[in-house]
Design a protein around this nucleic acid. Sequence first.
DNA 1: CCCGGAACCTGAAGGC
DNA 2: TGCCTTCAGGTTCCGG
Length: 275
Amino acid sequence: MPELPEVETIKNELSPVVCGQRILKIEFLWAKTLLKPGADEFAAGVCGRLITRLSRRGKYLVFHLDNGSLLLVHLRMTGSFLYGAETDALPRHTRAVIRLDNGHCLYFIDPRKFGKFLLVNDRTSLNELGPEPLDDAFTPEVLGRLLSGHRAPIKSVLVDQSVMAGIGNMYADEALFCSRIHPLRPADSLTSEEVKRLHAAIQTVLRQGIASKGASIANYFRPNGEKGYAHQEFKVAHRQGAPCPDCGTPLQRIVVRQRGTCFCPCCQPSSADNG
DNA sequence: CCCGGAACCTGAAGGC
DNA sequence: TGCCTTCAGGTTCCGG
């Protein structure tokens, strides 16, 4: 599932090939992939525009266009981009095709059809997201303030995009294991020591994910068609039943707010065990 | 406010 | 073999 490291990888690998290119046309093969505005207004807003740069905000990939508008793409569960020469036979599960003026195309591939394109005039919608966890401004003190006032399980607060942006199910589990915090601990019950550990763990697992080009656990692949290998380094995510890499105890899987959550019952003791 | 659950979707996996 | 059910989880929406 694309989270911050996966979107960051796509941004990094796409930037050199699409920046400076002009969009000739965008064609949607699944109409609902275009969230807003309507098809006509969208086409008028993007056709003929130059892509000046790419950026990322949370899990959004942002195409900056030369008229100042922003094309936001959210990959949701199964979205990926493939960059290549124009072909007659579209790749399986292609939901949108962005034709560039260098004869190449950006194919948006999304088996589950949850991914969304939005054309917006400014950053308003992006400002509703919480802070970027890899920014310099994201300090342990900031994290502590974000968590205070949330009595919900720390696992669900970590994946709440309005609290902080970019963390999803996999990296939340990894960060909690790395900081030895039980996923069901109320977010506002963490000690300052635990907040400090969690802060370091969040940055570590996200940076490792980026360094490993993202995790290809499900459908994610990179614009050149290759997979990432961050999942090979996961210690708990999607590894229920396997021995904990640190202590050998079988990893447990529980459901927290409708999300599968893997953790080590020995390395991540519950609040009751923790005092 | 808080929370749980359903909807959106398809393909992989498991049961029989 | 093949049909059927369940599950995966990012986001939004709806009801209690």
